[in-house]
């Protein structure tokens, strides 16, 4: 796959802090990665490691408590963090759109589905009411909702979870965005629907030639959907690799742990255990451990891991790892 030289989205040294009554929370602490035109990038990690906050920081959708975002988020060369409120509003839903995790609560219960899909087109493409509505019906057809004409007039409570997520996808795609941030789009759905939603996203992505940042903790989806993976832990990037290399040769002990916790039929015969879990939980962003943040849970921990923060080691293009084992 030949990628264009300049990335669509460049995130450089992103820090997102929340100032709460209990102190400052460093939810995202120096993250950088690139997204190229038309690719699907996977953002992986356990719950609470800063994946969602990274995505919300890109569109500045963090509301409460007040977040402080530092660093640079270059979208087609322009720093989104330099934009004023009106400037970022014109990007949202138009150039960069978002698909959320909870389709059940992400739609307004008192507005018709068609109205909610048409809204973005009305805002950004200056369509009239009728045009936007026709466009919404067209979008519903594209996300394979049967009877889109009559369905568009219904309210969200008449839609099942899978259908609502389709409607959310229709909403996200309605202005033909360059980049889609999909924050665990299938986590709340059951497995068969998950597969449908994922293949639908894949298909539409190619049709619209958009790039996707797919946030998930489901490595099965990663293996199927994405070309490149960024692994995050406790607000930092710990490893980046093309998807095949990541599965074949994970370098960071955390990535190894994540891959080990996928159930594989027949592993018990090989290793004597069904699942290889990572002991412990993600540290609270308010009390991150000194040195390597993963060291309390790492099975390859060394003495210096407790004092020295591991540098980012670039092994090849789009292949980097932050671990003292590699240093």
């Amino acid at each position: 796959m030949s990628e264009p030289a300049t990335p669509l989205l460049e995130i450089k040294d992103l820090h997102t802090r929340f100032h709460t009554l209990d102190g400052t929370v460093n939810a995202v602490d120096g993250v950088d990665f690139d997204v190229y035109q038309g690719e699907t990038l996977g953002l992986v990690g356990e719950s609470g490691c800063g994946k969602s906050v990274t995505a919300l920081s890109i569109l500045q959708l963090l509301r409460c408590p007040p977040a402080e975002i530092q660093g640079r988020i270059l979208f087609e060369g322009n720093n989104l963090l330099d934009l004023d409120r009106e400037g970022i509003r014109k990007i949202r839903g138009n150039e960069i759109s978002m698909i959320f995790q909870e389709p059940m609560t992400s739609l307004n219960p008192v507005l018709r589905i068609g109205e909610q899909i048409a809204e973005a087109a009305k805002i950004h493409k200056r369509m009239t009411r009728q045009e936007a509505w026709r466009w919404a019906v067209e979008m519903l057809r594209m996300v394979q909702i049967p009877g889109p004409g009559s369905r568009s007039k219904q309210y969200p409570h008449k839609f099942s979870g899978g259908m609502r997520q389709r409607a959310m996808i229709a909403m996200a795609l309605s202005c033909n965005p360059r980049l889609i941030l999909a924050d665990e789009p299938s986590t709340a759905l059951d497995v068969t629907i998950q597969a449908q939603i994922m293949s639908l996203m894949q298909k539409l992505k190619e049709e619209f030639n958009s790039a996707i940042v797919l946030i998930t903790h489901d490595l099965g989806i990663i293996a199927e959907m994405v070309s490149r993976v960024v692994v995050m832990y406790a607000g930092k990037v710990v490893e980046e690799a093309p998807v095949k290399e990541l599965f074949k040769d994970p370098r960071h002990p955390y990535t190894q742990g994540l891959l080990g916790s996928i159930p594989v039929i027949g592993r018990k015969e090989q290793t004597g255990r069904r699942l290889q879990e990572i002991p412990g939980i993600v540290p609270s962003p308010m009390e991150t451990p000194l040195g390597c943040r993963f060291h309390p849970r790492c099975h390859k921990v060394m003495n210096r891991c407790q004092e020295q923060e591991p540098p980012m080691i670039h092994l090849a293009e789009h292949r980097r790892v932050s671990c003292l084992l590699e240093a």
Partner: peptide
Amino acid sequence: SKDYVMTAQAKGADKKT
């Protein structure tokens, strides 16, 4: 504070809307 408000924000709706 509900999710659909963030959906609307992500669509680019202004405050008044």
